[in-house]
């Protein structure tokens, strides 16, 4: 830990961990973490410092079971690469994220389970 000299009269002296960093660290440990707004009692994703539902800055971190349903799916075609899936996944805890399903025949409504591909949260058929 590098010691820092605190700035005089600094109104907010606690360094807040960047939400994107916290999320990436969880992914690196193969955990799909999301935030929970205790006032609105609902999940928040993407992670942030302020809840869009209640305005609280006291968001809690939780770990998802990684189970969800495909809300929408597409296959993206590239000239020089094989076709690639991109999907929106509705996680059981009540948040939606962009990801991909690493399977063929991906369809809306399919149950999926998170898996980690070099620290990236992707999904496989459950």
């Amino acid at each position: 830990m590098v010691s820092r000299t605190p700035l005089r009269s600094r109104p907010y002296d606690a360094r807040v961990e960047a939400p994107a960093t916290r999320f990436a660290e969880a992914c690196a440990a193969e955990r799909l973490d999301f935030q929970w707004d205790p006032l609105a009692e609902r999940a928040v994703f993407y992670p942030r410092l302020v809840s869009p539902f209640s305005g609280t800055t006291e968001l809690e971190w939780r770990t998802s079971a990684g189970l969800g349903v495909v809300y929408a799916t597409t296959t993206v075609h590239h000239r020089e690469e094989p076709p690639r899936n991109v999907a929106l996944i509705d996680l059981d805890e009540g948040f939606r994220m962009l990801s991909r399903v690493e399977a063929t025949g991906v369809r809306i409504g399919m149950r999926v389970q998170v898996a980690f591909n070099e620290g990236t949260p992707v999904f496989l058929p459950a």
Binding site: F23, Y46, A72, T74, V86, A87, L98, R100
Partner: peptide, 25 residues
Amino acid sequence: DPYEAPFKAPMPVTAYALAAARHMH
């Protein structure tokens, strides 16, 4: 965007394709 970038989804077309897929469904 750190949450979208890893999936190499060309935007905006991917988003509109997802909306079209959902509308068809």
